[in-house]
Design a protein around this nucleic acid. Structure first.
Length: 263
DNA sequence: GCGACAG
DNA sequence: ATCTTGTCGC
């Protein structure tokens, strides 16, 4: 092997994502984005909303390629979980900021498809996603991605701000707590003038906001209204339940593995 | 050029 | 995402 080849090789390791793959991802996002709907397109304008879903994925710390995708559905009136399902999977696609959907969407879509067969009567009219909607570098985050592929109304919920269009965590924190603004919600207007979503202090005692954005087939106002209804704690209940149950499932899975190895 | 960057 | 104890407040 020549000296030149030795120097080139480290840059093509599997641990990094090739620029070719990134380009494919960008094209896929731009293509799907053409089907994105940023207005209310729900049953009964969202008034007779009964079943709201939530999705999340947890990963094993010992082996970060082992994941558990989780789907829960809640009754909006009682906020009781009426359905949950889990999918243990191996995820090789790395997390790349701006391309979360290519890592997480496949597992979540599988859960939705399975529910359509198993419990169609409980299938959610709307899905809350752990990840952004149009609050995204190309206006097409995980929540929008899932919404278009599943043809389901979705809302994007971020627990941290993905810096876009000049928006930063610190600038948002200032607006939320800066003297005169005692509001619990501020509009996320970028330097370009585009409105990406809102930062919301979802409960009275939460300083850290959540970031709400349109996913698919839901207006921002409707998204905000539904998020408020479901926020018993900082994170909307469907997502919080999915998160809790997802970790619990992985924890029990680990105990099962340990038992086999030990005995 | 460097840093920032949902989960 | 994941780790982990204490700690503050009602």
């Amino acid at each position: 092997m020549s000296e030149e080849e030795k120097q080139v090789k480290p840059y093509s390791e599997a641990s990094t994502t090739s620029s070719v793959e990134i380009q494919n991802w960008i094209e896929a996002q731009d293509l799907l984005k053409k089907k994105l709907i940023k207005e209310d397109d729900l049953e009964g304008n969202g008034d007779d909303l009964k079943y709201v879903g939530g999705v999340d994925i947890s990963f094993l710390k010992e082996d970060s390629s082992v994941a558990c995708g989780t789907l829960v559905v809640m009754d909006l009136q009682t906020l009781q979980v009426v359905y949950d399902d889990f999918s243990l999977a191996t995820v090789q696609v790395p997390y790349v900021p701006g391309f979360l959907a290519f890592r997480e969407a496949p597992v979540l879509l599988e859960l939705l498809e399975r529910m359509k067969k198993r419990a169609p009567l409980l299938y959610p009219q709307l899905l809350m996603v752990d990840g952004n909607g149009i609050l995204h570098p190309r206006g097409f985050g995980l929540a929008s991605h899932l919404g278009v592929l599943a043809n389901l109304p979705t809302i994007g919920i971020g627990k941290n701000l993905h810096h876009v269009d000049g928006l930063t965590q610190s600038s948002v924190r200032q607006l939320l707590s800066d003297g005169k603004n005692n509001d619990s919600i501020i509009t996320l207007k970028g330097i370009s003038g585009c409105i990406w979503g809102v930062a919301m202090r979802s409960t009275v005692d939460s300083l850290k906001p959540i970031y709400v954005s349109i996913g698919h087939r839901v207006s921002l106002d409707t998204a905000i209204r539904i998020v408020k209804i479901t926020c018993t704690f900082r994170v909307p209940e469907p997502i919080r339940q999915a998160d809790i149950r997802s970790r619990e499932y992985l924890r029990k899975f680990q105990m099962g593995m340990l038992k086999r190895t030990t005995s």
